[in-house]
């Protein structure tokens, strides 16, 4: 269990994390969602005792990280943003070092072998870390967090740098771990936290803008009124046909292809579901509907929705920061 109470971090005048509070319960996977520079890593560094907080308190299983750091740190497995690897060591040497460092009491060889099997690094066990690919380094970083079987796992963007099949595997691994651990993971991909997490905390500019269950948040964010349809038909006629459907507010040609299989973005009222009628219309005209899906939310949309325009300004600032 992790309790965060009014935690703040200031760097000089700059406020990286501003008075945030949330709780992650046992057996819960908490997603930490926010754009670049939102303060996700800073929060995680405070939770793990890497940096101190300017104000507020963080409790790991009831132990204050600043008051009893030794005891609290034993409960935590941490995967920082950049996996903290020693490039000149082999994976084996490195994991044994971590095992010693954490003063782990479990039987060493079987414990490390279990972890390697879990994150699938057995085949690079004797390789030197500096020769590993980014994805494998990320996995060794994850393995490092799992050494000692800590009850609380704090994972900063754990799937960055992995290939798609690995992402799926690591996500399902995290889900499995979530049953017996308290997990906090950060991400800037909405679909990732929606898939993996039970609860989602959305953070922007160091402040929490939403803290809700995955279901509630998905409901708030449901985007059925923006559809992307792939239709094989003459463009102009499609525009005219769709325009006659009740509830349609706007149609846009997203992508035009030479074989006249085009993608259209259709915006509708929040209340009406036009999917059935749309399908009828297309097929009765003798055209072909090749795909229909709701549009994925971008982080920009999420903040727009969550804060009803309040943090639009904030988001623009942060996206500017990202470009610099």
């Amino acid at each position: 269990m992790i309790e965060v109470k009014n935690l703040s971090k200031h760097y000089g005048d700059q406020i990286a994390v501003n008075n945030i509070s949330f709780t992650a319960n046992d057996g819960e996977i908490l997603g930490f969602l926010g754009p670049n520079g939102a303060g996700k890593s800073t929060t995680m560094n405070m939770l793990t005792g890497y940096i101190s907080s300017t104000d507020g308190q963080a409790l790991i299983n009831g132990i204050d990280i600043l008051e009893e750091p030794m005891k609290a740190k034993k409960e935590i497995g941490y995967l920082p943003e950049l996996p903290p690897l020693y490039p000149d060591m082999t994976v084996k040497e490195y994991l044994r070092f971590i095992y010693d460092l954490k003063k782990c009491k479990l039987p060493r060889n079987t414990h490390l072998a279990d972890i390697c099997r879990l994150v699938k690094i057995e085949n690079v066990y004797n390789r030197i870390i500096k020769h590993l690919s980014k994805g494998y380094r990320q996995r060794v970083g994850l393995a490092q967090a799992l050494v000692g079987n800590p009850k609380v796992l704090i994972l900063d963007e754990p799937t960055v740098g992995l290939d798609p099949s690995q992402i799926i595997e690591i996500r399902s691994l995290i889900k499995k771990l979530g049953k017996s651990h308290t997990v906090i993971l950060s991400s800037h991909i909405l679909s990732e936290v929606q898939q993996v997490c039970d609860r989602i905390v959305v953070i922007d500019h160091g402040s929490i803008v939403a803290d809700d269950t995955e279901e509630n948040l998905s409901k708030t964010l449901s985007q059925e009124h923006k559809l992307i349809a792939q239709i094989e038909a003459p463009t102009q006629q499609v525009f005219e046909a769709i325009d006659t459907i009740k509830g349609v507010k706007k149609i846009e040609l997203l992508k035009e292809r030479p074989d006249s299989v085009n993608d259209y973005l259709i915006e509708t009222d929040e209340k009406t579901d036009i999917r059935r009628e749309l399908f009828e219309k297309i097929s009765s005209s003798g055209w072909c509907m090749l795909g229909l899906k709701t549009q994925e939310l971008s982080l920009e949309d999420i903040f727009l929705k969550l804060t009803m325009g309040e943090s639009i300004k904030g988001f623009k600032n942060s996206s500017k920061e990202g470009q610099q």
Partner: peptide, 14 residues
């Protein structure tokens, strides 16, 4: 430089 201090300082070592 290598950010490995993150691992040392978050482990139960004084």
């Amino acid at each position: 430089n290598q950010k490995t201090d993150q691992c040392l300082l978050t482990s139960p070592v004084s």
